[in-house]
């Protein structure tokens, strides 16, 4: 399976990541290289070389199921500081460009 320039641009769109034209060729090459490794794994699964059928995927790396926290309200003390560190904040909110109008 090959990876095309269109695939890379599509994934970049999904990831909300702007990619310059001069980055594309390198990315296509990288994808093609890494997918060869991934496909070897996928093939081993499909060809039955790996007994995957009755296997559940890993959920936790260790065998303890993390317990739930007590259902108690905890006041956060950093709310103000988080907003202070934001690129733009006003009246206790993050500021973003308008999304209800414009040319999107």
């Amino acid at each position: 399976m090959t990876v095309s320039e269109r695939d890379v641009r599509h994934v970049a769109e999904l990831a909300r990541l702007h990619v310059e034209d001069d980055e594309i060729v390198g990315l296509v090459g990288h994808f093609t290289g890494i997918m060869a490794h991934f496909n070897a794994l996928a093939r081993a699964g499909e060809e039955g070389r790996l007994p995957l059928d009755d296997l559940s995927p890993v959920v936790f790396a260790h065998d303890e199921i993390p317990p739930l926290r007590a259902d108690e309200v905890v006041e956060s003390s950093v709310g103000r500081a988080v907003l202070d560190a934001a690129p733009d904040a006003r009246e206790g909110f993050f500021v973003v460009p308008r999304i209800m109008e414009g040319d999107e």
Partner: peptide, 26 residues
Amino acid sequence: ILTGTYVLSSGYYDAYYLTAQKVRQL
């Protein structure tokens, strides 16, 4: 980020991501 988005995207999730999680169990 692009590799990760790719293996999670529709049509590839089972072949790559889910397979890898199972192999991780192995």
